[in-house]
Amino acid sequence: MRDPGGTSDEVERAVFQWVAWYNGERLHSALGYLPPDEYEQAYWAQLEQVPQTA
């Protein structure tokens, strides 16, 4: 009888895809409903625009 969850490789791939989505693409309420990846890109872009003081 085959495991209804699929092979271990299929399960591993599905978990990886879910984690990648959850950590990078989902809308996050604490970030103004932006995906974490987009928020991080905006953060680094904003830092590049701030003049550095000596």
Rank of each mutant, 00 (worst) to 15 (best):
P51L: 01
Y22N: 07
H28D: 12
P36I: 03
P35I: 00
E40D: 13
D37L: 15
E40K: 12
P36G: 10
P36Q: 02
M1Q: 10
W18L: 08
V19L: 10
L27C: 09
Q52L: 05
A30L: 14
E38C: 06
Q17N: 15
A14W: 06
E40H: 11
V11F: 10
P35S: 15
A30E: 14
Y33Q: 04
Y43F: 14
Y33V: 03
F16S: 14
L47W: 04
G24M: 01
R26L: 06
F16K: 14
A20Q: 12
V19W: 03
D37Y: 02
R26D: 05
Q49W: 05
A54H: 08
P35V: 00
P36K: 00
G24W: 06
H28S: 05
A42M: 08
G6M: 05
E12Q: 04
A30K: 12
L31N: 00
V15Y: 02
A20W: 06
L27G: 08
A14M: 10
W21Q: 13
R26C: 10
Q41P: 00
G6L: 02
G6N: 06
T53Q: 13
S29H: 07
L27E: 11
D9R: 10
L34F: 08
A42F: 07
A14L: 10
Y39Q: 01
H28P: 00
F16W: 12
W21R: 08
T7Q: 02
A54C: 07
N23D: 14
A30Q: 04
E25P: 00
A45T: 08
Y22E: 11
T7A: 01
A20L: 01
Q41W: 03
Q46L: 07
E38I: 13
S8Y: 04
Y43I: 01
Q49C: 05
D9L: 10
R13F: 03
S29W: 13
E40N: 05
G32R: 08
L47Y: 00
V50N: 05
R26E: 07
H28M: 02
P35D: 04
W18H: 11
G5N: 12
A30H: 02
R2V: 13
L34H: 09
E48A: 07
Y43Q: 08
A45M: 06
S8I: 15
Q49E: 15
L31H: 01
Q46F: 10
P35N: 09
A20T: 09
D3E: 12
D37I: 08
G24T: 09
S29L: 02
L34K: 08
P51A: 08
W21F: 15
E25C: 03
S29M: 06
A54T: 09
W18T: 12
T53F: 04
M1W: 07
L27Q: 11
G32M: 05
L27K: 15
R26M: 07
Y33K: 04
A54Y: 04
G5T: 02
Q46A: 15
D9C: 01
Q49V: 11
